[in-house]
Nucleic acid binder design. Structure first.
Lengths: 186, 186
DNA sequence: CGCTATTATGTAAGTCTTGACATATAGTAC
DNA sequence: GTACTATATGTCAAGACTTACATAATAGCG
């Protein structure tokens, strides 16, 4: 089983979805912490079905092309539940902006500050978007957010990681930009 | 040019290094935001040399095997300087722990809490390590840390990202664990 | 003398991921 | 009519990355 396989099972444990639906999910929401293109999703679904973790049924549609809707099996749910509490395999993170920061001493200070001010803005905007989403969840889902056995609790937990991440990213970009601009002012 | 290529150029802009040295750098320090195995580094060095971005000279050693020491060229430094101020290509982040969190509602609360308490500890330890490093830098490097044209400033900037990241990670893990444990207590 | 570790450089096989190619239906805009 | 967008499913080639294989010098240990 690949991590992408578990990502797909995680989505199918909540609702039945087609390959196209899964692709859309990976673009939005879930895409903030795991993503894949349809060219990766369709073959993976075939492998999952071969392994007995999902089954599909063909839905015939008049106004649109027919589609295959996938459903998680008991076996699929079993492996997902096992995987979910195993400590993740630590693999080297790759952050291109930090890599650039590591060589930023070579750059023109104005251009460098512009880069980090731009990235700061990007992260601030993403943060604002996440915070709106959280406010909506708190209003709409209420008590469900406090129940660890409810999927909505899990959705909110993942969102909270996004909020903390974006806040940290924006804070760091601001710090780097200020440090560079500060020097220029002196 | 690949991102790994720029990562290597970033290291070579600071000092001359062999493929082996680069591999060691990617394991430690730099490895926190970019990493690669020697099997990826040696072919990449060959490509960089073919492109005229680096040159090597063979150093004969008596007590150890001979080595090739690589040096960045003016052209290599040129492309590095250009790359460093370009906004990074945004690519989907992949975080296995967040993916697990998204399906945590399926897990036994005790096991789920144990997972996040364990990860919280891991991040706290990494944070402590980074903070020690920062204290050492501030004591040892002093004024250099405030100069944006100094490599030490850039090293410190990258480290600050690590500190903010680990602090956020630990905070989030604690929040998730508490949320799960809180429910059990009620 | 063999075993292991460190330094040192490479190749090969396989997996993961992206980007391009490919097809088909239906609705909307020009 | 033509072009474009959304829905829907696939394949293929190439690149990025990991794991394992492969070699070689020296030093230290038992």
């Amino acid at each position: 089983m690949t991590t992408l396989g578990y990502a797909i099972l995680g989505l199918l444990s909540r609702e039945e979805l087609s390959g196209y639906d899964l692709t859309q999910r990976m673009k939005g929401r879930v895409g903030y912490f795991w993503s894949a293109r349809h060219s990766q999703i369709y073959p993976e679904l075939a492998r999952l079905e071969e392994g007995g973790y999902v089954v599909h049924s063909v839905i015939e549609q008049q106004e649109r092309p027919d589609k295959k809707v996938y459903e998680i099996t008991a076996e699929g749910l079993g492996v997902l539940k096992e995987w979910v509490v195993q400590p993740p395999v630590l693999k080297s993170s790759r952050d291109e902006l930090v890599l650039k920061a590591y060589s930023i001493w070579l750059a023109d200070p104005d251009e460098a500050a512009r880069l980090f001010r731009g990235e700061e803005l990007r992260h601030e905007e993403q943060l604002a978007h996440y915070e709106e989403l959280e406010a909506w969840m708190e209003g709409e889902w209420g008590e469900d957010l406090t129940r660890p056995d409810n999927a909505r609790f899990a959705t909110h937990a993942a969102l909270r990681r996004g909020i903390i991440y974006e806040r940290g990213s924006a804070e760091w970009c601001r710090w780097v930009a200020k440090s560079i601009e500060g020097e220029r002012a002196v």
